[in-house]
């Protein structure tokens, strides 16, 4: 049975922000946590046939990142881009993605990375699935589809869980779920010379500006600061290893770290 697979991806800023984040074509790249999701989608298509669509919410500068996803093997790329969406938090992002997914329906499988390497919340996948009212399983390391069902394995700290779930369903793919393929130069050339990224506005999705962007976001990031670690190196000057060990133990006990 050919599958209609949608992978929600994000163009992220990986450099540490020092002031306001400026998104340019060179400062954005595909979220590393999305790569296993995209790879899983491509493998599912190889097994079952069908189509892989990548979907993203972001500024127009994110377009080359979507073309890289096409170069990796995706069939179709959709970028929801609208000035009204600027400043969207995870819920507003999920609103926009859910509306876009409805427009792309019917689909069988929706995949996400477990989180993004910039804002790092891990919320967008489950939030989008909840808005869509479809099942979601997070941290999936193996995904097998048969008929209208998926059998998935997910990894927790000390547990491996196996689920059966009806499709359509959403999954976030664990970083160990798949090692992504390298993008070839032929694919890049074809993506940039011939392929197009479809661009949708908020209005195209039937949303109003109040549902997305700053206006649609219940949370606000007030400030961001780098953590300063004040670490000091201490030397133990005792001559013999035994004395050094005793001295180390004494200091650890004194510091309340052992004992």
């Amino acid at each position: 049975m050919p599958l209609n697979i949608i992978v929600c991806i994000k163009a992220v800023v990986t450099d540490m922000p020092t002031a306001r984040v400026v998104r340019t074509v060179d400062s954005l790249r595909l979220n590393l946590f999305d790569l296993p999701a995209l790879e899983t989608a491509l493998q599912l298509r190889e097994t079952h046939g069908g189509k892989v669509t990548v979907l993203s919410l972001g500024p127009p500068q994110a377009q080359p990142v979507l073309k890289e996803a096409l170069a990796m093997g995706a069939d179709r790329a959709v970028l929801v881009s609208d000035p009204a969406a600027a400043g969207s938090d995870t819920l507003a992002t999920a609103n926009a993605l859910a509306a876009a997914l409805s427009k792309l329906a019917p689909f069988d499988v929706v995949l996400f990375g477990t989180r993004t390497c910039d804002s790092d919340t891990g919320q967008v996948g489950p939030q989008t699935a909840t808005i869509m009212n479809i099942p979601v399983i997070c941290g999936v390391t193996r995904l097998a589809v048969s008929a209208q069902q998926a059998e998935v394995v997910r990894l927790l700290d000390q547990l491996v869980e196996t689920y059966a779930v009806d499709l359509p369903a959403a999954f976030t793919i664990h970083p160990e779920g798949a090692r992504s393929r390298d993008i070839g130069l032929m694919g890049l050339a074809a993506a940039f010379d011939a392929a197009t990224v479809e661009s949708w506005t908020i209005a195209d999705l039937g949303l109003v500006p109040a549902q997305v962007g700053d206006a649609g976001s219940p949370t606000r990031v007030l400030s961001m600061q780098t953590v300063k670690r004040d670490r000091q190196c201490e030397f133990i000057s005792a001559q013999q290893p035994e004395q050094q060990a005793d001295e180390l133990m004494r200091r650890l006990v004194e510091a309340g770290l052992v004992g």
Binding site: T24, D26, A71, D182, F192
Partner: peptide, 24 residues
């Protein structure tokens, strides 16, 4: 921001760099 490179070239650099960092 590079003034000479088109989006395609920026993507090529990014992709090739990722390959080089991972494989070479």
């Amino acid at each position: 921001m590079d003034v000479l490179l088109k989006e395609k070239h920026i993507s090529i650099r990014r992709t090739v760099r990722a390959f080089c960092e991972r494989e070479i």
